[in-house]
């Protein structure tokens, strides 16, 4: 029972309590709200917003994981190697665009709402997954690869039975980075009318209500911490199961 574990449990309990009955926390937040203004955000159900925020992030994460890993596998095959530099610079370019710019470009194309946010999230998620998967696929020792061939594995079998398992910890590390940045980027999505926790923060900023800002930002931060923790634990498990 170490401190970190206790802190984590406390965080989960408080998030759950806050989402179930936000009014319990009203006394704590009262001093942050302007005189006479509401303390707890009531324009939407906070639990529902949290679920939407998470859902959007998870959907985008799944898509970028799929694209990133497939891309990394493709450019490490003999037939795809020549596309390695190109795909690297494309993924890097995606990352250098600020999220707001991606949103601004996506809105005219697909309209307001969840779609432009999803596009931005996917684009942002691909690079960390791709780069980490690439590093992971390069992690298998040359001798193990030669052994796989010598044992009579086909290329596909070698990929599935040796290269991917050994790459899994690195792939999970990439997912973790993408998830953390995704949780943050989804916040900005509310600027283009995606329903996320960003709505609470922006409402607070617009009405000068610090209590709103703290509620929204606190929930977002808590989500990022908990997701990162969960993925880190998986990563450690995988590294243990698939040591190099």
């Amino acid at each position: 029972m170490n401190v970190a574990f206790v802190a984590r449990v406390a965080l989960i309990v408080s998030v759950a309590a806050f989402l179930a009955a936000p009014s319990i926390f009203e006394p704590l937040l009262r001093s942050l709200a302007p005189e006479g203004a509401p303390v707890i955000y009531r324009h939407a159900n906070l639990a529902e917003l949290t679920a939407l925020h998470l859902g959007l992030t998870a959907l985008a994460l799944a898509a970028s994981a799929l694209v990133g890993v497939i891309l990394a596998i493709s450019v490490t095959q003999p037939w795809g190697r020549e596309f390695l530099p190109l795909s690297r610079s494309l993924a890097n370019a995606g990352q250098t665009f600020p999220p707001v710019a991606v949103l601004a470009i996506a809105v005219p194309a697909v309209g307001f709402g969840a779609e432009p946010t999803l596009i931005a999230l996917i684009i942002y998620g691909i690079l960390p997954v791709f780069e980490n998967a690439l590093a992971g696929l390069g992690r298998a020792p040359a001798r193990a690869l030669e052994a796989a061939d010598a044992c009579g594995m086909t290329r596909a079998q070698r990929l599935r039975k040796v290269e991917l398992p050994l790459a899994l910890p690195a792939i999970l590390a990439g997912l973790r980075l993408a998830a953390i940045s995704g949780v943050a980027t989804a916040t900005i999505g509310s600027a283009v009318a995606a329903r996320t926790l960003g709505e609470v923060v922006f409402a607070g900023l617009a009405s000068n209500n610090l209590a709103y800002v703290v509620q929204g930002a606190g929930l977002i931060a808590a989500l990022a911490i908990l997701i990162s923790d969960a993925l880190l634990a998986m990563e450690r498990k995988a590294a243990e199961a698939f040591p190099v």
């Binding site: 044992c151 009579g152 199961a241 190099v244």
Partner: peptide, 29 residues
């Protein structure tokens, strides 16, 4: 791959699959 399944190959430093147990390594082919 079919040829190699009929010919045993041992290399320096064994070259075992690091993520697989001895049993799994041996049962590969």
């Amino acid at each position: 791959h079919l040829l190699r399944r009929r010919i045993g190959y041992v290399m320096q430093g064994a070259g075992l699959f690091p993520h697989r147990t001895a049993f799994e390594n041996i049962s590969t082919t």
